[in-house]
Design a protein around this nucleic acid. Sequence first.
DNA 1: ATAAAAAATTTACGCGCGTAAATTAGCGGT
DNA 2: ACCGCTAATTTACGCGCGTAAATTTTTTAT
Lengths: 341, 341
Amino acid sequence: MPPREIRNMDEFAAVSGISRPTVSKYFHNPDSVRQSTRARIEAAIEQYDYRPNIFAMNQNRKLTKNVGIVVPLLADPYFAEIARNLEQRCIVAGYSPTLFSAHGDPEQEVAVLNNLRALKPAGVLLAPLGRASDTDVLAKFCEDVPTLIFDSSVAELGIAFVGSDNQQFTAHITDYLCRTGEPPCFFEMKNPANPNAHRRRHAYLAAMEKFGHSPHVISVAGEGWGFEEIGRVGGHDAFARNLFPTNTILCSNDRLAIGLLTASYERGITVGRGDGSTVRIAGQDGHPHSRYTCPPLTTISHDYDAVSKHAADTLFAAIEGNAERWQSTRIEGRLILRDSA
Amino acid sequence: MPPREIRNMDEFAAVSGISRPTVSKYFHNPDSVRQSTRARIEAAIEQYDYRPNIFAMNQNRKLTKNVGIVVPLLADPYFAEIARNLEQRCIVAGYSPTLFSAHGDPEQEVAVLNNLRALKPAGVLLAPLGRASDTDVLAKFCEDVPTLIFDSSVAELGIAFVGSDNQQFTAHITDYLCRTGEPPCFFEMKNPANPNAHRRRHAYLAAMEKFGHSPHVISVAGEGWGFEEIGRVGGHDAFARNLFPTNTILCSNDRLAIGLLTASYERGITVGRGDGSTVRIAGQDGHPHSRYTCPPLTTISHDYDAVSKHAADTLFAAIEGNAERWQSTRIEGRLILRDSA
DNA sequence: ATAAAAAATTTACGCGCGTAAATTAGCGGT
DNA sequence: ACCGCTAATTTACGCGCGTAAATTTTTTAT
């Protein structure tokens, strides 16, 4: 039961017994007013349920509290999960996150960035499409808006990059596969959307060389972000043409592995590390779905929490003025052993 | 190379040779000005790359062009896909969509609705959490903001409901399963998050009765939105306790079916419609992932396009004043035959 | 207690645009 | 050429808040 409707900050200041500029200061940063004043304001907020008009607030403020979160494909649960994680961290830190997806389309990525500009964001957490991104547009955006790049690196753009250590990912799981059976071949897309794919291929080649095995890469055709279908179709083709030289297949990512599992099933090829199985298949990413494939997928998982925490903290530090030199941080993954390999 | 920086609508009106009120009118609705005027304005936009300040625009407008899209769980590709679909339709219709997820948490749903209020949206497309939603908060929100409820209905709230015809879904796939093998039992959550689950159970019971078979429902424990895990754990339990009376299992939804497939695999139970298989498993939803399970999942799919088109069109009509009486529209699904049943 | 420092208040202006009312210009039809 | 209508212009005010400068009050330190 609010005693009466508060229409604006003037009225709110009146009923709370504090001057409007001080109230304004409070909403900008609650710690910037005296403790007793803060208590009185917060009591009045509680009582009158007043919230300042965000449009009027942001109109004149040089720096808003808005933070944009941009991912290349929200329909991919991996990005949905990391976006959720980042969103929570923004809220906790007092920012207003807004979520955007490029839906796998470079033109939509450009459109998203343009719309984002209009929000005058204090900062942006951006996972670019990668190879398909318009680098010039990205670079110009990063000049204008404090932008932290995550997941997939594009040049040395923005205030920093935070992602996973793909070298370590692939080296680690390759090592595991070599120690527990035949050395793996490497299953990937010919023209991967994401630059991480190249790092993983190189890491595979290096790891195999280091262990004294001869590497073997199977690159399948396919464009876009329908990785499962690309893996399935490419897998059928590779099986049909007998392209896999060993019984162990390391996939460039989990979604490709999921498609390959489907192809294997459809061809009656049993997958697993047990004696009755024909091939071992492993993925990379720790995709939320990987637990539920048949067989459950052995993979190496991103440290979702660590990546998003570091990304968010770095952006907030930059926004608050503690800017450091551009830096790339890559966080190690954790091997998840399941039945597929 | 813009000849000079345009700072506001006054300056833009000056360089385009049109008065500011007319320019303002144009941005509100390009069709509301004369064709020749529109051409001059658009030429100037092209040349000077001017875009009005959205904060100033929305501050005084009684009705903004903002549309909120709220889903219960963005990490579920089903919701991600329908959200993407709705987003595109908003953009095409000239609205500015903003995406929100409750992340499966009723408190976050309330928080999202509160934040949404501050955006003064022209309308909202809301898929509620369902059973866990705070109905009072939803009702109050629907009173204040033109809200179209989709996916899962809660009372007769908002301007209309648009969703899938769960009766038809279940009747149709039950019919198919009865015609092609043993009549199915029904696998569901004991306390489903979503009211659609109840409709599906009832439709199953009705369909079985109609076909002259005795129905059998297996309700597994589990709270929250981790359906795959609930299906997997519940499946293990049901298999262990021999709770499935027939070799055909119709799951209340695809994610539950995915978990049940995993449980079947882990117990060495072969799934499929072929002779060598032990059980048939079918889902409901046409989940984006259902194509890639092993075996690929037979399911009945939402008509994503039709649902989102009808939802968006109904909301836009209501926003533009063509309000009709509250109405519930349920769209039929399409059976997708794959190998699991 | 007193001075210095910190916080709050008063006053006042501006942001970029929405919008209303009265006026003027442009258009087609006869 | 005239009338009637629609569209554009001029003028003017307001929205809700940010923010700066000058002043007063409160707190802290001595």
